[in-house]
């Protein structure tokens, strides 16, 4: 009987939320769904219709495995380094020492820089007469007559280290802010209880703080891992194009320079596959698939 009471007006009102999201839907269709769909179509579109040959080509390409190797080496080391440093900084700021808020503000500055600018900052830093060498000379750690050529060609391991340092500088604040927010959400009494019941500072960290911080740690690690898979601009700016080839760079290379659009699209899909896998892993770990019934407070 409720239908009779309202008639067409009620029915119209029940669709009301959908009217409101129409602009957003149109935006997503125009700028996300259509480009994404045409990208997917491109990757499977051979001269005679549907084909998997571009994927076969990518998977047989030795450069693909090189790029995959570099990307994952970078991912594992950089996310680990960033996490440990960020955790230390977050724990420090969470003690609320004098000047903590100023320190937090300064620490967050790298986060707001555009990718190109921080790439440029480090590119100028690593140059032979760059600020990194000047700093080392001023600190008395380097002989001014013999500056280090950081970017000497072909030293891949050193480049990887330089890349990790540069990226950590930018990635650390975002990891730190997630961990800090998590830490501040943990009641101080949990830690105090641990201290009273006999735990040392390190035991409190390992048995109480870190387990309670797990949701934030997962968020930070997965977000940074996804970011690491997509790394590209900073490498190009610091080391030059295709000198330290990573996955995204290969996609761009095939797409723009070799005009092999289908190969570029195939690369892009593979990268997307990796990112989606990581995201699903994140959602699974954070308990999103278990419905409303989560553990912890």
């Amino acid at each position: 009987m409720p239908e009779k009471l309202g008639g067409w007006k009620t029915r119209l009102a029940s669709y009301y939320p959908y009217y409101l999201i129409i602009p957003a839907i149109l935006y997503y269709i125009a700028f996300w769904a259509i480009p994404a769909a045409s990208g997917v179509a491109l990757a499977f579109q051979g001269p005679k219709g549907f084909t998997l040959r571009y994927f076969q080509y990518v998977l047989r390409d030795p450069y693909f495995y090189q790029a995959l190797g570099y990307t994952f080496t970078f991912l594992v080391i950089s996310v680990t380094v960033e996490f440990i440093l960020a955790l230390a900084v977050a724990l420090l700021i969470n003690t609320n020492f004098k000047g903590a808020s100023l320190f937090l503000f300064v620490a967050l500055i790298p986060m707001v820089l555009p990718e190109i600018s921080y790439g440029a900052i480090w590119a100028t830093g690593y140059a032979q007469h760059g600020w990194v060498n000047s700093l080392l000379v001023h600190l008395g750690l380097m002989d001014p007559a013999q500056p280090m050529s950081w970017l000497a060609y072909g030293k891949i391991a050193r480049w990887m280290a330089l890349l990790i340092v540069a990226e950590a500088w930018r990635g650390l604040p975002s990891v730190m802010i997630i961990l800090l927010a998590g830490l501040q959400g943990i009641s101080k009494e949990y830690g105090e209880a641990a201290r009273i019941f006999g735990a040392t500072g390190f035991q409190t960290l390992r048995k109480i703080t870190l387990p309670l911080l797990k949701p934030s740690i997962q968020t930070a690690l997965i977000l940074r891992a996804i970011g690491a898979v997509q790394i590209f601009v900073i490498i190009t700016v610091i080391f030059g194009h295709r000198n330290l080839p990573v996955l995204v760079e290969e996609a761009v290379y095939y797409f723009r320079e070799l005009h092999q659009k289908q190969l570029g699209a195939a690369y892009a899909l593979i990268i997307m596959g990796i990112v989606v896998t990581l995201s699903v892993l994140y959602l699974w770990l954070s308990g999103s698939f278990k419905g409303e019934e989560g553990r912890g407070e």
Partner: peptide, 19 residues
């Protein structure tokens, strides 16, 4: 330090570790 004082404490919020 608290851990060596031979004390126990019951907190207002209980502070029972949820994990």
């Amino acid at each position: 330090p608290p851990r060596d004082r031979d004390i126990s404490m019951v907190f207002q919020s209980y502070a029972v570790w949820p994990h």
